[in-house]
Simulated scan of single mutants.
Amino acid sequence: MWSNSVFKPEGKVNTSSTYTFRSQTNSWKTKLSTGIKGLILPLLLLSLAEMTVRQGWIAPYLLPAPSSLWQTFLELLHADLFSHIYISSVRVGIGFFIGSGLGLIVAIAVGLNKHIEDYLDPTLSAIKSIPSLAWIPLLLLWLGIDESSKLTLIIIGAFFPTYTNTVAAIQHVDPKLIELGVAYNLNRFQRIVQIILPAALSGILTGVRNSLSLSWMFMVAAELIAATQGIGYLLSDGRETARPDIVIVAILLLALLGKMTDLGMKKLEQHLLRWR
């Protein structure tokens, strides 16, 4: 009879760690592949713009060559570019947190109470339809050209996406979940905190992300009209001095800052919804 020890392996293979390593490697490769794919279109557009300007098909005073934008960026960097970025970012941050916070509070009240909805929603729906530029003359008349008018415009822009998405998310919570809370003898406050808000969290966060994007857009609208600092001011200054290179650099900065803040919000969303 053969001994069982002959067939016993000397070491045990940790299949769990091997699977985890392979999963992490595949995830890293997928992210790298996705990142490379995302760069293809911008690189093609930059190459096309460079070629059209170098060939003389488009005048440089209309569209500067992308290769010349680096020099413009360095010039702006020595001319206090970070101060413009800081001012705009602070305006967006303050306006976004106040506007989306107010939108969240009002939306929860409207979404949970039909009587409050009947009073507030028709008026808010009408105000939501007003274009952002229409507010600027009135805000300048009421608040002047200082920071209060700019922040108020950003607050208005940040309020409505959070409000609209939060109301819709709360009102579309599965009634069976609420009935389950009643069956477990949860009071109204407990049902709101433990059932309704977690179930509506995905829609709420979508609205908050949209509010952040609109905050950047409304910031530009405010700074284009009345500002002496900020990225919107750079856009206006580039237009008035016939410097399309400054305008394009400012637009690229806005795209970069908007993308970075959206990625941060996306990471926060993934963290808060990790339970799913």
Score class of each variant (00 low, 15 high):
41 L>M: 09
25 T>L: 15
87 I>L: 06
204 I>T: 06
159 F>D: 10
236 S>G: 13
253 L>P: 07
89 S>E: 00
220 V>M: 00
78 H>V: 11
235 L>R: 03
190 Q>V: 04
113 N>C: 02
221 A>Y: 00
218 F>H: 01
31 K>S: 13
209 R>L: 02
145 I>C: 02
2 W>E: 12
71 Q>H: 14
190 Q>R: 12
25 T>H: 14
174 D>K: 10
15 T>I: 14
89 S>T: 12
133 L>Y: 02
251 I>P: 01
43 L>S: 10
41 L>C: 03
236 S>I: 06
28 W>Q: 13
242 A>R: 10
24 Q>S: 15
72 T>W: 00
260 M>A: 15
140 L>T: 06
40 I>Y: 04
118 D>C: 00
183 A>T: 13
243 R>D: 04
96 F>P: 01
184 Y>P: 03
142 W>S: 08
225 I>V: 12
265 M>F: 14
112 L>Y: 00
180 L>Y: 13
222 A>Q: 00
205 L>N: 03
181 G>S: 12
153 L>F: 06
91 R>Q: 07
132 S>C: 00
91 R>K: 02
265 M>D: 08
62 L>Y: 10
193 V>G: 06
250 A>S: 13
201 L>C: 05
151 L>C: 07
83 S>C: 01
258 G>H: 05
178 I>G: 07
203 G>W: 03
82 F>M: 14
251 I>S: 08
123 T>F: 05
85 I>K: 00
155 I>V: 15
16 S>E: 15
12 K>W: 11
38 G>Y: 11
231 I>S: 01
120 L>F: 05
1 M>V: 09
151 L>S: 05
70 W>E: 06
177 L>I: 11
56 G>V: 08
97 F>S: 06
199 A>M: 09
164 T>L: 15
8 K>T: 15
270 Q>F: 10
232 G>H: 00
137 P>D: 03
268 L>W: 11
118 D>N: 10
78 H>W: 06
212 L>S: 01
145 I>E: 05
229 Q>L: 06
116 I>T: 03
36 I>E: 04
274 R>D: 05
79 A>D: 14
116 I>N: 00
27 S>E: 14
61 Y>S: 13
204 I>S: 02
159 F>C: 12
101 G>E: 02
236 S>T: 07
267 K>Y: 13
24 Q>C: 11
112 L>C: 03
227 A>W: 01
59 A>H: 11
36 I>C: 09
190 Q>M: 08
56 G>E: 04
108 I>L: 08
195 I>P: 00
85 I>G: 01
180 L>W: 07
212 L>I: 05
142 W>K: 04
155 I>R: 07
119 Y>G: 00
146 D>R: 11
268 L>K: 10
231 I>H: 01
273 L>I: 12
227 A>I: 03
68 S>E: 07
